[in-house]
Design a protein around this nucleic acid. Structure first.
Lengths: 354, 354
DNA sequence: ATGAAAGCGCTAACAT
DNA sequence: ATGTTAGCGCTTTCAT
C-alpha cells in the first residue's frame, strides 16, 4: 500500500497517469481477493454480506470505477454501439439519435457518438475509430462513405444505415419513403384545387431524387403532367429563394409551390413576399421534413413529417438483432411519412381555377 | 474458410463473436513474430522492408484492424477525450463540438461523444460511461450535473465545463461574457436614440441572469434606470410572444425590445406584427446567440454572437494541457461576445424622441 | 532487425 | 463463499 516517492519516475516526464484505483487496490483494502471484488461489482449473489460491505466501503473510499477497457478486452464485447453522424448541425440527426439512444438503453447497450462533419475523409476516420474501439455494432447516419468502406466495416461488425441507401450484405438500411411523402404533398395541394403545382428541387441532397419522382408520379396521377414544372434547387434557403423568384417571374404563375425541404421553403416564402404576393391567399407553399423551422408560428409551414425518432429506433433494433443473432440477414426497412397541415396552404380561390 | 457446423456452439447461445483478426493471426500469416507486426502497425523504423511488406499483405488479407481496447489497456491512455453534451438538439453545442473536434485532432486526440438528453440522471450515466471507458479527459457541455458529481469526476481525470459555471478544483470553465453581451446590446439600442428599452427575460436559462444584470447595468450607465422594464420569459418562442404582448399592451410602449435569446425574439416579432407594428420602423428588436434563426433573411435579426467554435477550442485546449501536464491548475476562461447588426434595429425617429 | 516474456485490469473457469 | 489461475490483444523492455 505504501506508494513511496521512490516509485515516481524521471523528473519532467509527463508522469504516467497511474491514477485510477484497480480491483486489486480495492481487494487489498477490503482484505479479500480480487475475485470477490469482481463479484461484488458485477452484482453476483454468492458473496457474504460482510465481504460485500467491506468491498463497497473500500471502493467508495478509493473512488474506484470499473475499467471498461479491461472488461471489454476479456469479454470481447463492449456493449457499445457506435454511431457515426455525418453532421451534428442537422437537427434531423439529433432526433434520430434520440431514437437510437432509447432503443439501445432498453436493451442494456450504450451509444458512442462520433462525427465526420460532412467530410468523407473525417467520416471514415470516425468510423474507423468506432471499429478500433470494438463497438459491437455501428449505425451510420447520413454517411457519405463509399460502398467499399461500408462493406469492409460490415465484415467486422453489424452495420445499419440511416439517410443513405447502399444495398450491401451485412448492412441494414432504414429509410423514410420520400417518394410517398412527395405524393402526399402533391395530393394535398391538388385536393385543394391547385393545378399549377411547381417543385423546387433538392438537387443531390439526400432523398431529393425520390421526392422528385414522387412529385412527377403524383402530378401524372392527377392528370397534371403538362403542368409539371421543376425548378433547380439545393435544399438551402438561398436556393429556395432563387427558385421561387424564377418561378414567379415566368409566364404562367404557379398557384402552389412544393419545396423539397423546409429550409428552401422558407427561402421561397421570402421571394413570394417580396413579389408582393401573400401566402396562402395568392400562393400555397409546402416544405418537407417538419423541422423546428416549419413549426415557428411566424412561418407555420405545411410540410411532410418523417418519423425520425422511429427511424432511430428501427436502426438500433436492427443492429442489436444482428449483434445477438450473428447469423440473421440484414434488411431494408421503409417507414411512412405523414402530412402536417399548417397555415401556408389553402384552397385555390375559384376565380383562379384554370 | 469452411465455417463448419461443428464450430457452432450450443443451440440458441449468442455465439461468442470471435471474429476480428488479431496481431497473432497476422504474424502467423506473415511468418514473423507478433513483435514485428506491432512495430509495423505503429510505424516503427526498425523493420526490414521484406517483413514490413509481408505484414502489410497479411493484415490487408485478414482485414486486420488494431484493437484499441487492448492498446489502451497496456498504454493506460486512450487518446480519447470524452464529451458529454446535455442536448444535441441545441445548435449551440453543435458548433462548440466543431471547435472541440478541431482542437483535439490538431493534437492527435479523438473525441468521443455521449449525451444526456437534458436529463440529469442520463447525464450522469453518460459521464460515467466516458470515465469507465477511460477517456483521458472530459468536456461537459451544458451539463446540469451536481457539483458533487463533477468534482468526483475531476478527481479521476481533467474536466472542462462549457455552458455551466461551477468553480471546482480540477475543473476548467469556459464561458462567454453574457454580461458584456447584454451591455453591447443596450449600448447599440441607446446609441440609436432609444430610451424605452425593455428586456424579455430568460428566467432560469443558461446565462439569463448575467444578461439581466448586463441590461440593468447598461441602462443605468445610459442614465435610463427609470426606464428599466423586465418582462418574464423563458428562452422559448412562446415566452417571447407572451412577453412582447404584455409589453405592447402596457401604458408606455417601449421603442426597443431586447429579447434574451433569438428564439424568444422570434416570438416577440410575431406579437409585434400582430399588434400592427412594424420592425424596425415602429419597434426595434434584438436577440441573443446569433443562431441560424437570426440569420434567416426572413427574420434578419440584430443579435449578439457568442464565439461558439472558439469556446470549444478553448475547452479542449484546457483539458489537453492538463492531460499532458498533470500538475497544472484549472482556470476560468472568459470569451468576448460580438454585436451583429442586421435589419431589426433602427434609429428612433426624431418625432418620437422623448 | 527480430523474438521472448512480462503485464495492463479485468472476467471466467476451476478448485476448495 | 472465496481464492487461484489463465488468458483477452496488445506494447514494452530486454535479449540476441
Amino acid at each position: 500500500m505504501s506508494r513511496s516517492n521512490v516509485e515516481r519516475r524521471g523528473a519532467g516526464a509527463a508522469s504516467k497517469p497511474s491514477r485510477h484505483a484497480t480491483i486489486i487496490d480495492v481487494a487489498g483494502k477490503a482484505g479479500v481477493s480480487k475475485s470477490v471484488v469482481s463479484r461484488v461489482m458485477r452484482g453476483e449473489a454468492s458473496v457474504s454480506p460482510s465481504s460485500r460491505a467491506a468491498v463497497m466501503a473500500a471502493a467508495e473510499e478509493l473512488g474506484y470505477r470499473a475499467n471498461a477497457v479491461a472488461r471489454s478486452l476479456v469479454q470481447r464485447r463492449t456493449y457499445n454501439v457506435g454511431v457515426m453522424v455525418s453532421d451534428l448541425h442537422n437537427i434531423f440527426f439529433a432526433e434520430v439519435l434520440d431514437g437510437l439512444n432509447a432503443a439501445a438503453a432498453e436493451r442494456g447497450y450504450r451509444t458512442l457518438i462520433t462525427t465526420g462533419n460532412r467530410d468523407p475523409v473525417a467520416e471514415e476516420r470516425a468510423l474507423e475509430q468506432l471499429l478500433e474501439l470494438r463497438a459491437d455494432g455501428v449505425v451510420l447516419a447520413g454517411a457519405r462513405l463509399e460502398a467499399k468502406v461500408v462493406g469492409a466495416a460490415a465484415r467486422a461488425v453489424p452495420i445499419a444505415l440511416v439517410g443513405s441507401d447502399l444495398r450491401l450484405p451485412g448492412v441494414d438500411v432504414v429509410v423514410d419513403d420520400d417518394f410517398r411523402g412527395a405524393v402526399l404533398a402533391v395530393e394535398h395541394l391538388a385536393g385543394l384545387g391547385h393545378r399549377d403545382i411547381a417543385l423546387i428541387d433538392g438537387g443531390q441532397g439526400a432523398g431529393a431524387a425520390e421526392r422528385r419522382s414522387g412529385y412527377r408520379a403524383a402530378m401524372a396521377g392527377a392528370g397534371l403532367t403538362p403542368r409539371i414544372r421543376i425548378e433547380p434547387g439545393d435544399f438551402t434557403e438561398g436556393g429556395g429563394y432563387e427558385g421561387a423568384r424564377r418561378l414567379l417571374s415566368g409566364p404562367r404563375l404557379p398557384t402552389a409551390i412544393f419545396a423539397s425541404n423546409d429550409q428552401s421553403a422558407v427561402g421561397a416564402l421570402d421571394a413570394i413576399n417580396e413579389a408582393g404576393l401573400r401566402v396562402p391567399q395568392d400562393v400555397s407553399l409546402m416544405g418537407y421534413d417538419n423541422t423546428a423551422l416549419a413549426a415557428l408560428r411566424h412561418i407555420s409551414l405545411t410540410t411532410i413529417h418523417q418519423p425520425r425518432n422511429q427511424i432511430g429506433k428501427m436502426a438500433m433494433k436492427a443492429v442489436l438483432r444482428r449483434i445477438e443473432h450473428p447469423g440473421s440477414p440484414a434488411r431494408r426497412h421503409v417507414l411512412a411519412p405523414k402530412l402536417i397541415v399548417r397555415d401556408t396552404t389553402a384552397r385555390l380561390p375559384s376565380r383562379r381555377m384554370a
